[in-house]
Each structure stands twice: as structure tokens, then as C-alpha cells.
Design a protein around this nucleic acid. Structure first.
Lengths: 157, 157
DNA sequence: ATCAATGCAAATAATTTGCAAAAAG
DNA sequence: CTTTTTGCAAATTATTTGCATTGAT
């Protein structure tokens, strides 16, 4: 019999708890609420979205706490930051598998699509190595017009 | 006998003049000073750097004019914007050849190196096509530790 | 007890914008 | 003349930060 879905969050939860424990930090009520909020969100969300969700779990969570928790969630691999040069950044709750992702960004409807781009990892490493650099991370973003927008009047002319 | 170097700026200058003329805009003194300032800068520079340089050519150039001129310079292909997620954006005056460039960013000393990555263009197009999208532009950024920083105490530990 | 973490509100800082005056065509 | 462009200063807005208080260990 498979584990109930809620176990996922609990397993991730202990991963997060040990991450902060290792750093000598504390598992506060607010911090854990932000964590749970992240687990409850899908797709790209903003810090503000996360705040709203976290507030729903614990009314005492403040915006400052969100911004202070984000680096911890990123550092523990619970979430990933997606910066496509807009006014605010996006976040994405990671599923288990951590494959290399690129962003396909529709210039018309502004949708952001995460796509697997495993080859990129190799290519980025190769580019870095060619210049004697030790690669850490990489980002590939393709701006384009999505299928739907090609077939209709542009939303942002 | 080769043309004097200053001719380059004049040729680019008429390219810029026709770009703004086509759009029904006006070749103001300040606008042209910003253009000349861009021609006089090398490497990555900020809007503030451009302002300083332009002010040296025409004291009446204001910050607002810089920000209003930047989209024109970008649109005419005179400069390219480089956004690596820092607090301010960088700009780069384009030489004639417009090859696909990636950025290698040293996480330690924060240096940004522009590198040719011609294969990326193909790969980005392939990724877009696979999702039925029509590609417009793409960005590849590799964060790494540069050779020099590997051999010394990190500047940003 | 300790010292990290919190909420609040003020600070930050690049970029944008409203407006009346100046200048390009 | 007409319309665009300008400088100025104020606005915008995501994120950061100082501080007194609270809470985890």
C-alpha cells in the first residue's frame, strides 16, 4: 500500500528541519508555516503568493519572515528561484528529481514554461571549462512566442 | 588607406539617425550625446556609467534621458542589455559582428565574461521548436569560479 | 538564560513617470 | 506651429534592514 500523499510533506519537512538544525538555526512556527506553504503551491509563485499562502496557515507570518525564509528554502533545495528579469522573482517548489531546467518564456502572454534541457548542463560545463572556470550553476532562457499566441492577436502588441 | 577610427562612430551614427527617423522620432542633442557616449565606452557599463560619460559630452543630459534613450539604443542594435540578476543592469556597445553570446559570471569576484556560444543558438531554437514555439532571443549564463579566484582566497566568502 | 527570530515600519535604490518648459521638424 | 523631448522631482515597488520584543533550545 502506497504512503499517503501527506507523507511527502513530512519527509521533506524532516529534510528541512535537519537543514536548519545543521546550521544552528531554529524551527520556528513561522518558518515551518512558510515551508508548508511552499509545499502547498504548484507552478511559479511570487514571494507575495507565498506570503498569502503562509498567512493562511499561520496568521502571524510577516512579509519580512518570508524574505528571510526564502534563502533557507533555496539553500535546502526545497524551492528553486526563477529570475526572468521581471520586476519580481518567481519560485518553484522542487519535486524530488532535480534535472536541469530551462525556461521558455512567451513574449506575448508572458507564460513561463519549465522544460528539461539536460544537454545544457554539459554545454555550460564545457563553456566554463574552456575558460578555466569551475562551473556552479547555469541558466538558459529562451524568449519566444508560444503556440497559442501565434494563432491569435498578440496580447502585448 | 583605411578610414580613420572616428568614421566608425559616424557610420553607426547614421544607422542610429535613420533608426529614429523611421520611427518618427527626433535626433536631439541629448539623444545623440548618449549615443556618442555609448560609442565611447567599452566592456560592461551601467546606466549610471553612461550618464556620466554622456554628461561629459553634453552637460544637459539628465538621468531620465538616459533611461529614455536606452530602449532606442537597444532597439537599433547599437547596444545590448546584459541582465545577470544584479541590482542594476549592464550594457555593452555592440561591435559589428552579432554572434550569440553567453555570460560566464564569477561568483567570487563577480566579473562577467562574454563568450561566444554559437551552438546555443541552435539548441535554444531546438528547445523552442520542440514546444511549438517560435524563438525570438535566448540567454545562457553560467555561474562559476574563475581561474584567478580558484587560486586565491575567495573575495566573497 | 541565551541568542536567534520575529513583526513592524522605515530604508534602499534602480527605474519610471507627470508635468510644464524647451526645441526639433 | 505642432508634436516630441527634455529636466526635474516625485513616485514606484520588490526587497532589505534596524530595532525592540518574543520564543526556541
Amino acid at each position: 500500500m502506497p504512503k499517503p500523499a501527506t507523507q511527502d510533506s513530512n519527509e521533506q519537512s524532516s529534510a528541512f528541519r535537519s537543514f536548519i538544525a545543521e546550521k544552528g538555526l531554529r524551527a520556528t512556527r513561522q518558518r515551518m508555516a512558510v515551508f508548508e506553504a511552499a509545499q502547498g503551491l504548484t507552478g511559479h509563485y511570487t514571494a507575495e503568493d507565498l506570503l498569502k499562502k503562509a498567512k493562511g496557515l499561520d496568521r502571524t507570518v510577516s512579509r519580512a519572515t518570508i524574505y528571510r525564509a526564502l534563502p533557507l528554502l533555496k539553500g535546502s533545495g526545497i524551492i528553486r528561484e526563477v529570475d526572468v528579469g521581471r520586476d519580481h522573482k518567481y519560485y518553484l517548489t522542487e519535486s524530488g528529481i532535480a534535472t536541469f531546467r530551462a525556461q521558455l518564456i512567451c513574449e506575448s502572454c508572458e507564460e513561463i514554461i519549465e522544460v528539461d534541457a539536460p544537454f545544457m548542463e554539459w554545454y555550460g560545463k564545457a563553456v566554463a571549462a574552456k575558460h578555466g572556470m569551475r562551473p556552479i550553476s547555469q541558466k538558459l532562457q529562451v524568449t519566444a512566442i508560444c503556440e497559442r499566441c501565434q494563432k491569435r492577436k498578440p496580447l502585448r502588441p
